[in-house]
């Protein structure tokens, strides 16, 4: 009797575990499945509400992807996003990595306060800043230029990545630098030659995170950029594939899927580091 109830309970637990995972996975991925299937559907199939929409009834069409790559500047937008992304990543690394180290090691009590202050700048959202920025960008003559985005995007990547790097450096044992300094390196030398090389994972996390933020950004790009050849993906796609009331659903869904998947794969490799940096900074 005893073993049988135990077995039933264990079975129940396993089924429940599987059920929970299945439900959550469905919730999280259904929109992507939906994008995938919509991308390859013909338009007349999309608007036929009598047939089962979950599967393809006609052979998959490449027309939606053709519209995306031939009739819109999707390729150009991806290139723009990449250019802005690389430039912003470079600026962020140069600024945030030393700052994170300084906050983790070289500053005392006021460093703590400053770290919280840097975090608090994260609470000033683009929805507050884009109004003054639209004037600043105009006065600098940068409107409609990718450089406006390169200038402005570090305003949200730098605070966050400083915070991430600070958390990351705090997890590195001090002995490592102290040993290097006893061997005759200066503090800065120890930072460059010892700490940075063993922090590759943290730095890659910053790179990926910055790039994701750049790709996601919408409000600034919508406000500063008006000509189609300068758009980034997140603004170009909704602007050009929604014409009044006409939505090019197939192409929209394809566009979304193509940019999401590669980043998701990269992200998955670094998620643990990323989370560690995220939380250590806040708690310690």
């Amino acid at each position: 009797m005893q073993t049988q109830t135990a077995r039933i309970r264990r079975w129940g637990g396993r089924v429940g575990h599987f059920g929970i995972l299945a439900a959550f996975t469905t919730f999280c991925t259904f929109p992507f499945y939906w994008m995938l299937i919509t991308t390859f559907k013909q338009t007349n199939e999309l608007i036929d509400s009598n047939i089962n929409p979950f599967i393809l009834h006609n052979p998959p069409t490449l027309e939606n992807l053709r519209i995306l790559f031939v009739d819109t500047l999707y390729g150009q937008w991806m290139l723009n996003t990449l250019i802005v992304g690389v430039a912003v990543v470079a600026i962020t690394l140069l600024v945030a990595v030393p700052a994170g180290y300084s906050l983790a090691r070289l500053s005392g009590r006021w460093g703590q306060q400053l770290a919280i202050g840097i975090f608090l700048t994260y609470l000033i959202p683009p929805t507050i800043l884009f109004i003054p920025f639209s004037r600043i960008v105009g006065n600098l003559g940068l409107q409609d230029s990718l450089w406006s985005l390169v200038l402005v995007y570090p305003s949200f990547t730098v605070p966050f990545c400083t915070w991430l790097m600070m958390g990351f450096f705090k997890t590195i044992p001090r002995d490592i630098e102290e040993a290097a300094m006893i061997d005759g390196l200066s503090r800065f030398g120890a930072f460059l030659k010892v700490v940075v090389p063993i922090s590759t994972a943290g730095i890659l996390t910053v790179v990926i995170f910055t790039f994701t933020l750049v790709m996601q950004e919408f409000v600034y790009a919508l406000t500063f950029i008006t000509s189609s050849s300068q758009y980034t993906v997140s603004v170009g796609v909704p602007t050009f594939l929604v014409r009044g009331d006409v939505y090019f659903w197939g192409s929209l869904m394809g566009a979304c899927l193509i940019v999401s998947l590669p980043i998701a794969i990269l992200y998955n490799l670094f998620v643990d580091r990323f989370v560690a940096g995220f939380t250590v900074g806040a708690i310690k």
């Binding site: 959550f24 999280c28 929109p31 994008m35 919408f218 993906v233 909704p238 940019v259 992200y267 998955n268």
Partner: peptide, 24 residues
């Protein structure tokens, strides 16, 4: 695999993910 799938919504650009929902 499950973790990869569950991370997808966070990684996709919000404007595009929201358009996916608009269609749903």
């Amino acid at each position: 695999l499950v973790r990869f799938l569950i991370l997808l919504p966070w990684v996709a650009p919000i404007s595009l993910g929201s358009i996916g929902w608009l269609w749903i």
